[in-house]
């Protein structure tokens, strides 16, 4: 594509829209998560601020904005502030290649999924820096956990996506959506159930959500890598967590659930419905299961998910060779 002024304006508008989406998503998801947690636990959840507590998340973010930012003694000042920023901003880039609708892609690139997988690594870097720089033993333990967990789970995640990529024969996300049909039985979910399952498990681990929330394991490490963060530092980590959740949900919708295609009237609403169903699944299991232990977490990955995803990839390759 030519580098014209129009092109830059388009990207700029897209980035602004994505920032709005990320912040709006965080506000909505904080409310949805707290309300779902409340309902699962048979209590009303947020109730006082606004009708049915809908303004609670906004008021909470105001509180976080107004809070003092505390820096522990002997903390690494630069890295301490760099970490939350590093957690939040790379996620922006990752939304660029996602096809929200048939004509609603910020940046139509042939290597969209490569971009996403490459920049997703920044998230763990920020966790590591945050834990390391805050001069806190819990933080260091959480950071160490975050790194080994992220490295481990990226492999089955990529291998699961690779099976779909083999099938579609492209790295372009829009083309992967186009390769799927409108009806649920034409989605990749049906012909790649194992890959879908592996991806689902890995995405929970990759976004550090319960039952794989080891880096911030509350009952063990108080808050893990963000123990010492307060105010906006904490808010940025929080935003990044929800943005990451949204991203992996969009990728899941694109790869396995037919993206913007639906039984009636294709459009971006289908992408959002599907992505938010995946988000609800993540919230739902968080409030259901206890946390796994660290060695079990790695065992699940190296002993089960990795061989299974390799097997899945192998079978896919053979089937494609035989049929195609």
């Amino acid at each position: 594509m030519e580098l014209s002024l129009l092109y830059f304006v388009k990207i700029l508008v897209a980035v602004l829209a994505i920032i709005a989406l990320m912040v709006g998503n965080a506000i909505v998801m904080v409310y949805v998560e707290r309300k779902a947690a409340g309902f699962i636990q048979r209590r009303p959840g947020p109730y006082e601020v606004g009708p049915w507590g809908t303004l609670q998340a906004i008021v909470d973010s105001m509180k976080l904005l107004a809070k003092q930012i505390f820096v522990p003694a002997n903390a690494d000042y630069i890295l301490f502030f760099l970490a939350p920023i590093l957690a939040f901003f790379p996620v922006l880039l990752l939304f660029l290649p996602i096809p929200f609708g048939p004509y609603l892609t910020s940046w139509e690139t042939p290597d969209g999924i490569i971009l996403i997988l490459a920049f997703a690594g920044f998230g763990v870097l920020s966790n590591l820096l945050g834990g390391w720089a805050s001069n806190n033993k819990y933080g260091v333990l959480g950071a160490a956990r975050a790194v080994s967990q992220s490295i481990a789970y990226e492999i089955p995640l990529i291998l699961a996506l690779l099976a779909v990529i083999y099938q579609a024969g492209t790295l372009n996300l829009s083309e992967i959506v186009e390769a799927q049909g409108s009806w649920p039985w034409q989605w990749n979910l049906v012909c790649q159930p194992l890959a879908f399952f592996i991806y689902l498990v890995s995405l929970v681990a990759e976004t550090n959500r319960a039952p794989f929330d080891l880096p911030e394991a509350e009952s063990e490490l108080t808050a893990g890598f963000h123990t010492e963060y307060s105010g906006m530092g904490f808010a940025l980590f929080f935003l990044a967590e929800y943005a990451n959740m949204l991203l992996v949900s969009f990728v899941c919708a694109t790869f396995f659930l037919g993206g913007y295609k639906g039984p009636i009237l294709d459009g971006f609403w289908w992408t959002f419905i599907k992505a938010y169903l995946v988000m609800f699944f993540i919230v739902w299991i968080r409030w259901t299961f206890p946390r796994v232990r660290f060695d079990q977490l790695l065992n699940i990955n190296w002993k089960w998910l990795l061989p299974l995803s390799l097997l899945n990839l192998w079978v896919t390759a053979i089937v494609i060779k035989v049929i195609g």
Partner: peptide, 8 residues
């Protein structure tokens, strides 16, 4: 159960 991470 909360010690083990299950909050509900």
């Amino acid at each position: 159960v909360m010690d083990l991470g299950g909050v509900t």
